[in-house]
Amino acid sequence: MKIEYYLPETILSNDDLFLQFEGFESAKVELKLGIMERHIASDNETALDMAYIASLKVLEGYDKNKIGFILFCTQSPDYYLPTTACILQNMLSLPSNIGALDYNLGCSGFVYGLSLAKALISSKICEEVLLVTSETYSKHIHPSDRANRSIFGDGATATILSSTDINKIFNFELGTDGRGKDNLIVKNGAFRNKIQTELLHEKDENGIFVSNNHLYMNGPEIFNFTIENIPNVVKTTLEKNNLSLDTIDYIIFHQANKYMLEYLRKKIKIPESKFYNNILTTGNTVSSTIPIAIKECLNNYTINKGDKVLLAGFGVGYSWAATVIEI
């Protein structure tokens, strides 16, 4: 599994946010959320632009003609249509006899992509897949929404998956609960609700910032969803693969925020030494947090050849996906 990632050049630090928001507690954000800075796409930089750079990096020195499919995960596409993956095919000068599609998922997106890539390769629809995750959530967030601006960062990843790789991707546990749709949503701008020209931005009954043209996240409900579901998702994933926590070498969850991850770790009784918790310089990059974490862990030898690594992504939808991979 060959992974590369790209983060935009512009950095938004806690100190920058302190200058914009009265009472912003930089030290507390770093301590509790585990975030010191995040990368933000410039006004004219899109998910496609970032995906292109990440893809070029992963394809460097690689025979592009082997790629038979592009899977592109994004919730901030360049256009309603055409599909971002089609444009990326042309930008990368990939052959035209390949499949390409976008899929709209957030924090579960990378693990979902692994399941789709495994299915495509196992069924011999193609031999190799370019799996891309790319988000500019910053463009969904209202400038006055300091909570979400503290949490989310932009970024893109590109992963090449071959038949050798998919033999090392074990069974999946996928899940969906659309009852959570209102808790992480951009309500306006598609076809259900038009953009409001007289912009309403206020606080909801829970004191959470609301602008229906922008990203809304009900943090307490997302936290509840996570602590209610993810321990069981881990248990079921292990059962489906006839594995136990003891036989897993390392665990990488979607990097939502440090506090939530630490609480989950303790609740599931995962040893600290086996658990990734680091978004200090990236923030929550949505579908890219897991591949960025894998890449970092490979680079610093936290995970090594032969290790079994449990991956779990969860969030907007609600949607979740987990599996075990062997490095």
Partner: peptide, 17 residues
Amino acid sequence: MGIIAFVDENFDVKLNA
């Protein structure tokens, strides 16, 4: 988040938003 975690951990009760 601290309140939600505290109540879940100590009383196995989930408090919604």
